[in-house]
Amino acid sequence: MSLVELHAIHKSFGALEVLKGIDLSIDEGQVIALIGKSGSGKSTLLRTINGLEAIDDGVIMVDGKKISERDTDLLALRLQVGMVFQQFNLFPHYTALENVMLSPQVVKKQSKAEAREIAEEMLAKVGLADKMMHYPDQLSGGQQQRVAIARALAMKPKVLLCDEVTSALDPELVNEVLAVVRQLAEEGMTLVMVTHEMRFAREVCDKLVFMHQGRIHETGDPEEVFSNPKTPELSSFVGGLA
């Protein structure tokens, strides 16, 4: 059974239908890249997986459990599904260490010592052991994003959602963040990422999902999909990038 299953997901913003019936299953340890043009619905789809966007219709199952709109269900869902954002979204009044410790302490009720131990471990993992006492505005974009990854990991999620995690970064900072994501993938973390880094997607991901006009237009093994696109839309999307 898949870790996360989406079935017939529909979502509209007003009159605009953004997701027109999405079916997607995510297996444990799988690394999935969602690609497509802006407005194709890929970020919205990602945000439905942890309930940041409420769906209009369809079923989301995590670990075999159906997720409803109730708050308790959403909180349980989010314990399993972490998320990292394009804009990092660190809490500006806490240090890097405190950012990572906060949720283990207040949500999981871990002791300060426990939370600190995990936070230090996670910050070391993303290469920021020496920046723990820095505030977000004292860190570069790449460092902030790595703190955000450590913060999500400290909750020990089963799936990590990455929403264009390198799109807000200066080019020279992209690689340090991608290196962390690559390391997570190699360690077997289940990842779903919206990305424009095609080369990275091709190298690291197990499955590519090409979205077009609110639907999954084409999906499959990245190597296969990239080298042999079956639809003219993907062909032009991939061609436009080359």
């Binding site: 942890n50 309930g51 940041l52 708050d71 909180l75 989010r78 314990l79 599904v81 972490g82 998320m83 954002f85 804009q87 979204n89 660190l90 809490f91 906060l102 949720s103 207040v106 949500v107 955000a148 913060r151 999500a152 909750m155």
Partner: peptide, 16 residues
């Protein structure tokens, strides 16, 4: 407060 801060907190399973 930027909405992103609140979404980040929601994603960390914090309640309201």
């Amino acid at each position: 407060i930027p909405q992103g801060q609140i979404e980040a907190a929601q994603s960390l399973a914090m309640n309201r």
